[in-house]
C-alpha cells in the first residue's frame, strides 16, 4: 500500500511485536482462563443440576440419562423419539444435512414413515411430521403431543395397562407449556416414568 503523505505527528508508535505479544498473553489469561473459570464456577454453584448436564436419576441414584439428550428406544413398551442422524450419541451430534431435493432423504423418510405406520397400525396420512424428520442436533429429546398420542395404544398394550394411565403420564411429561414455545413431550422422561410406575413385563429378564 502506498504510504499516504500522512501527518508526521502521531507516527511515533510503531506498535512493536513485543507489545502485540504481551497484550495477547494478557488477553488470553483474562479471557481464555479467568473468564471461563469464574463463570463456570459461579454457574455451577448457582445451578448445580443444570451445570452438570441436567441428569435424570433413578430412585436408587443411578443415572438414567439427561433431560436434554434423547435416547434410542426400540422396545414395544416404550415411546419412540424422532429419527436421529447421530444414533442419539451426544458425543457424535449431527443433523442429516440432506436437502429437500435429496433422494436419500426421500428414501429415509419413506422407510421411517412406513415403520411408524406399521408399528402404530395406521396409514401414512396419520403419521406425524416430527416422527419422519431428523432433528438438527440428532439428540432432540422431544416429540409433539400428536406423535405421543398415536403411540399410546401400543405402549399400553405392551405393558398391559389402561390407555388412560399412559395418557396421564404423557400429560405429566409435557414441557414448554408456558407462554414461550409450544408444548412438547420429553420422551426419555416419559419412558423413565413408565418404567418406574408400570414396569414392563420383560424387565428382569436378564
Amino acid at each position: 500500500m502506498q504510504t499516504a503523505n500522512s501527518s508526521n505527528e502521531p507516527m511515533a508508535s510503531r506498535a512493536p511485536w513485543v507489545q502485540a505479544l504481551r497484550f495477547m498473553l494478557v488477553m488470553a489469561i483474562l479471557l481464555g482462563l479467568f473468564y471461563p473459570l469464574v463463570t463456570t464456577w459461579v454457574g455451577g454453584m448457582l445451578f448445580p443440576d443444570q451445570g452438570k448436564g441436567s441428569l435424570i436419576h433413578a430412585e436408587d441414584g443411578r443415572v438414567i440419562g439427561s433431560r436434554l439428550v434423547a435416547q434410542t428406544f426400540v422396545g414395544e413398551a416404550y415411546f419412540i423419539g424422532r429419527p436421529s442422524s447421530a444414533g442419539n450419541d451426544a458425543g457424535e451430534v449431527v443433523g442429516s444435512n440432506l436437502a429437500p431435493d435429496s433422494l436419500e432423504l426421500r428414501e429415509r423418510a419413506s422407510a421411517d414413515a412406513a415403520a411408524v405406520a406399521a408399528r402404530e397400525g395406521g396409514s401414512l396420512d396419520r403419521v406425524p411430521l416430527d416422527l419422519i424428520t431428523a432433528s438438527g442436533s440428532g439428540i432432540d429429546p422431544h416429540i409433539s403431543p400428536a406423535a405421543a398420542d398415536i403411540q399410546v395404544a401400543r405402549v399400553a398394550r405392551a405393558r398391559g395397562i389402561e390407555e388412560a394411565s399412559v395418557m396421564a403420564l404423557v400429560d405429566e411429561s409435557l414441557e414448554h407449556t408456558g407462554w414461550l414455545g409450544s408444548p412438547v413431550v420429553n420422551v426419555l422422561v416419559l419412558n423413565a416414568r413408565l418404567d418406574d410406575r408400570f414396569p414392563p413385563p420383560s424387565t428382569g429378564m436378564e
Binding site: V127, L129, T133, A146, G181
Partner: peptide, 27 residues
Amino acid sequence: PNAALTGLYQTDAGLQGNLEGKELRFG
C-alpha cells in the same frame, strides 16, 4: 413443506412446514 416428504405424513392436522434438521422446541 419439504419437497422430499410429500405424501409421507399427516397434512390435515399436527405439525407442518419443513421440520427436517430443525428442533421441535423451536419449530
